[in-house]
Design a binder for these strands. Structure first.
Length: 598
RNA sequence: GGUCUCGUAGCUCAGCUGGAUAGAGCAACUGCCUUCUAAGCAGUAGGUCUUUGGUUCGAAUCCAAACGGGAUCACCA
């Protein structure tokens, strides 16, 4: 498509030279897609030329259109509406491009990309509570962006930095010690991450009660928060953990083990994976070396109490603490360490962090500090900042229990998929395993598409009262289109329709919907490039939807198998197959699989 | 208060570096299943693109201000 566009731009440039003796380099010619209500594929806007040429916009359009028809072999015709020159392309050009694409699907995706080494960090959960809907958006985004970057020609490492230490873990541990009675995931028949999450909530409940009691005794609220016995115990436990106390470490390992089992089950179920796991318990001390380095280089400074700071006022930020007076790390300290570690491990060109937009400031600081340290890899750091998922009641908050649990949501989606499938009764021949598989495919398709079709940067709303749709602009709609085409292919195979020929010279005219499909198919590689450039799976989702919609129109308007001409028939089969393949590929970039039947 | 972000149909969202009468889906209403899967297709209705200025041939898009959401500005992570 890029090529054809460039050719037309070149022809226009030539036409401007020939008819108006006006020099206008082809690279500066901007073509836009023609609106649906007019004939044509590309539109050239002539308004900007009126001054330079001293002619009216329509006059210019007419002259250029005439010249194109004479001189550009790809151009079938043109029409001018006000200052818009709509250029129509010959059908055999589309057919030619189609033949080429059938023969080399995907070969050109990475060509324009820079083949970079990219680390994509995503998921990065805390080990004190199970995953919720917000984490799902993160996981799906991270996975999809990784796949898109790969498709665009980059080498990608998917990394997960597990936040497995800190005061929040100790809270769960304290509550478990006090109220757990030796409960295990097996004994309670609860997934490990949910069991630990239960105690995190228990802690918070008991802690709040302690605060209330203290306040009732006349203690200031802020003071009460610090004085509450449970909080003191949690602090103590964190100290013990840092000192390597055996009993504490043993409990920590046991409970984290439960959580990991739970997470891995969820990851497997939702179809995301990682090439590399980092654990904060291993990396949280690394940042101190960077702090030393900064002090040595004189870009950090020490305050009287011994705490270490960096001054980022020149960068438009504030002063930022990097190390506490007692020498312990803060959040940013760890990230300085892991950034360096990642670079040592992979020598990346780009390091992408898939983290919610509430941490925008943090990543500005991180990048600025690494630059101050003179780290060349700082330039490659990119915060893929995505908007939070809101509920109708507002923001989700773990501690207040206003979260949509990931595992529960997935189960509900599977249930919905089962119901809808049963209502339609189209899968009679399925074994129960096949049926289960299909429910899962559809459920994940609906859920992932729902979360990925929205621009990552934007906040989005999820209403738990309304189940996610299976109609319209949804994953299942696109999956359905694929299943329909699969049925076409089966029938074509039964009938023995020739399927590997790419000679379509006998196809004289294209149905409008065929032409639209061919045009869309030509955009595949630029869609991949665009999505990679913008880290935006939503671009892929939108395209997949458009393609499916266009195909469905073709499907209802053109009775494929009633075509008497064998070559035309095999063209329609080939077109169908190419659409199916493209849908499968695009959905794959979103982490969504497509069924053969549904 | 400083900084950053968002505001498009009843609802959820598209609208690329400015271009034609602002588009989809859901919900509502009307049609279309005796041949390829109706989880589909066609159509009707629904808009002061928050407001006001500015830039220009031309603004949902760029700039400024106002109003209204949200995030952040922790020795939390």
């Amino acid at each position: 498509m890029k090529q054809l566009e460039a050719q037309i731009a070149q022809a226009l440039s030539q036409a401007l030279q020939d008819t108006f003796q006006h020099a206008f380099p082809a690279e500066q010619i901007n073509l836009q897609p023609t609106r649906k209500e007019f004939a044509g594929t590309f539109t050239f806007v002539t308004f900007p030329l009126t001054k330079a040429l001293g002619k009216g916009p329509e006059q210019i359009g007419q002259a250029l259109g005439e010249s194109l028809v004479q001189n550009a072999e790809q151009v079938a015709g043109y029409n001018v509406v006000k200052g818009f020159l709509n250029i129509e392309i010959k059908d055999n050009v589309w057919l030619q491009l189609f033949s080429e694409q059938v023969n080399s699907f995907g070969a050109d995706f990475g060509k324009t990309g820079q083949k970079q080494k990219v680390v994509v960090e995503y998921s990065s959960p805390n080990t004190n509570k199970p995953l919720h809907l917000g984490h799902l958006r993160n996981n799906f985004l991270g996975y999809s962006v990784s796949e898109i970057l790969k498709a665009a020609g980059n080498e990608v490492v998917k990394a997960n930095l597990v936040n497995d230490r800190g005061i929040h873990i100790c809270k769960s541990m304290i509550a478990y010690e006090k109220f757990g009675n030796g409960e295990t995931p097996e004994s309670a028949n609860i997934k490990g991450d949910h069991l630990v999450g239960k105690y995190y909530v228990e802690f918070d409940k008991a802690y709040k009660q302690e605060i209330e009691e203290l306040v009732a005794q006349g203690v200031e609220k802020e003071q009460a928060k610090k004085q509450a016995p449970l909080m003191m115990e949690a602090q103590e436990m964190l100290q013990k953990w840092e000192q390597g106390d055996q009993e504490t470490i043993a409990l920590w390992e046991k409970m984290n083990g439960w959580v990991y089992d739970g997470f891995h089950a969820t990851y497997k179920n939702i179809g995301v994976d990682f090439d590399k796991f980092y654990y904060e318990s291993n990396t949280y001390l690394l940042g101190k070396d960077r702090v030393e380095e900064g002090l040595d280089k004189g870009v950090f400074f020490k305050k009287a109490d011994g705490s270490v700071w960096v001054d980022l006022t020149e960068e438009g930020l504030d002063e930022k603490l990097l190390l506490r007076a007692d020498g312990t790390s803060v959040y940013i300290t760890q990230d300085l360490g892991t950034a360096e570690l990642k670079y040592e491990d992979f020598q990346y060109d780009q390091s992408v962090y898939v983290v919610a937009d509430e941490q925008n400031y943090h990543f500005q600081v991180l990048k600025a500090v690494l630059k101050k340290l003179g780290k060349s890899y700082a330039e490659g750091i990119f915060h893929l900042s995505y908007g939070m998922v809101d509920l109708p009641s507002g923001k989700m908050k773990s501690r207040e229990g206003t979260v949509v649990d990931a595992d529960e949501l997935v189960d509900e989606m599977i249930d919905t998929a089962r119901q809808k499938t049963d209502e339609l009764g189209k899968i009679d021949g399925f074994s129960s395993e096949e049926a289960q598989q299909l429910y899962h495919t559809l459920a994940m398709g609906a859920l992932k598409y729902f979360l990925l079709k929205v621009d990552p940067k934007k906040r989005m709303l999820f209403n738990p009262e309304e189940s996610i749709d299976f109609k319209g602009n949804t994953g299942p709609f696109i999956q359905y289109t694929h299943a329909r085409i699969a049925a076409i292919q089966r029938k074509a195979a039964d009938m023995g329709v020739a399927s590997d020929s790419t000679d379509f010279t006998e196809v004289e005219t294209l149905h409008e919907t065929e032409r639209e499909a061919l045009i869309l198919l030509n955009y595949v590689s630029s869609v991949v490039a665009d999505a990679a450039k913008n880290y935006a799976p939503s671009i892929v989702a939108q395209y997949a939807f458009d393609l499916a919609k266009t195909y469905n129109r073709f499907y209802t308007e053109v009775p494929i198998f009633q075509e008497p001409n064998a070559q035309v028939l095999s063209f329609r089969i080939a077109l169908s197959r190419q659409v199916a393949q493209t849908i499968k590929f695009m959905m794959g970039l979103l982490g969504i699989s497509v069924p053969e039947r549904m």
